[in-house]
Amino acid sequence: MNFITFTENNLRSFTYNVFKRMGCTDEHATLATDVLIRSDLRGIDSHGVARLSGYVRLWEKNRINATPNIKIVHETPTTATIDGDAGLGLVVAPFAMKVAMEKAEKYGSGWVSVKNSNHYGIAGYHALMAVERDMIGISMTNASPLVAPTYSAERLLGTNPMCYAFPAGKYPPVIVDMATAAAANGKLEIAQRANKKIPDGWVQNKEGQSSTDPNELKSGGSLLPLGSDKDHGSHKGYGLGATVDILSAVLSGANYGPWVPPFVAFLEPSANPVGEGLGHFLGAMRVDGFRPAEDFKAHLDNWIERFKSAETVDPEQKVIIPGEPEFAFEQERKVSGIPLIDVVVKDLNELAGKLGIGLLVQ
């Protein structure tokens, strides 16, 4: 496995051209590009430009509307439901978070459930929008049905990520951004490209037995919930994934459970959908709705410092604050560039040839 490093600007230009070729407006192409590049900058390589082929594939199948009319279809002073009109989730979710923040500015908090959307990139991007306004940001989405609930051999839930983001003072925000499965499907895709086995406890085969094959899902296997199996707390991951599914889809009118339209190529959408598209849930809460924002941020700084100074089992290893590794990646990659494995570069340049745009160059 070889890595090729690209500047942020080169990847932005290439990605923007892909979205423009799909028919997106300048504004939407720029925003969708920003979501993907932010993922690569933050070291979440599974959800960055490596996903471009997936978006194009869905657009070619008329499952993504490049020029959506995103609108509020139900509303109260502090809540709303948004119809994404089958648009890119990379565009729909930021629209929804802006609505949530506007409501929070006026009433203290805002909560938005979304239907008729698509894959929205990393959950952290949307939650961080609120942090920039001294708000606590919440972001979650349901996803392709690849996860088997505890005791099940059937795939009924997605990896269903959730993110909570908190503004700090002199330190970077605290960002809890995680899949509710033992591993995100993107981690399996990375292992597939590298031809490596995956850790035990991530997936099971179609008979429900543990497997280390990253291709297991293609032959009927399933991801396991956070906690791995019934002996290691998988019911907790299952419960979290269920919560995301209910808030994102049952609440909004999107598809839920096994009816969620898949992003992965080896699954086809349900012939009998129970809703519209897939769903998201976004929330924003003003910190000063609880205490002065500067007080909160000073105490969160104190919280960070205390956890960082904790005595550890290994003196060489410090406690990691949620979001700290991603922040470090972002600072480094803005200077040194973004590394992509050669398999991804090959895939992107094949995509460029198919779309008739310039190749990705260093």
Rank of each mutant, 00 (worst) to 15 (best):
F266P: 01
E276A: 15
L282Q: 11
V264S: 09
L267W: 02
A293R: 11
D295C: 09
A271I: 03
A271D: 14
F266S: 06
P273F: 10
L267H: 03
V264A: 07
A265L: 04
E268I: 00
L282Y: 00
M285H: 12
P273H: 09
F263L: 15
L282T: 03
S270Y: 02
V287S: 03
A284F: 04
K297Y: 06
F290S: 02
R286G: 04
R291P: 00
P261Y: 04
L278N: 09
F296S: 02
E294M: 13
P262K: 11
E268T: 15
A265C: 02
P273S: 06
N272S: 14
L282G: 01
A293Y: 05
S270Q: 05
A284G: 07
F281E: 00
F281W: 11
L282R: 02
R291Y: 10
H280W: 07
P262A: 12
G277H: 08
K297W: 05
H280M: 09
F266N: 12
E294Y: 10
A265K: 15
A284Y: 04
K297A: 08
R286T: 10
E276P: 00
G289S: 13
A293W: 05
H280V: 07
L278T: 13
F266L: 09
N272G: 04
N272C: 09
M285C: 12
E276W: 08
E268P: 00
F296K: 03
F263S: 05
F290I: 11
L282S: 03
P273I: 03
G283P: 08
V274C: 13
P292E: 11
F263P: 00
P292S: 13
A293C: 13
A293D: 10
P273L: 07
A271P: 00
R286Y: 06
G289A: 13
L278Y: 01
H280N: 12
R286W: 06
P261K: 05
D288Y: 07
G283Q: 02
P292A: 14
G289Q: 09
G277W: 06
G279V: 03
F263W: 05
V264R: 08
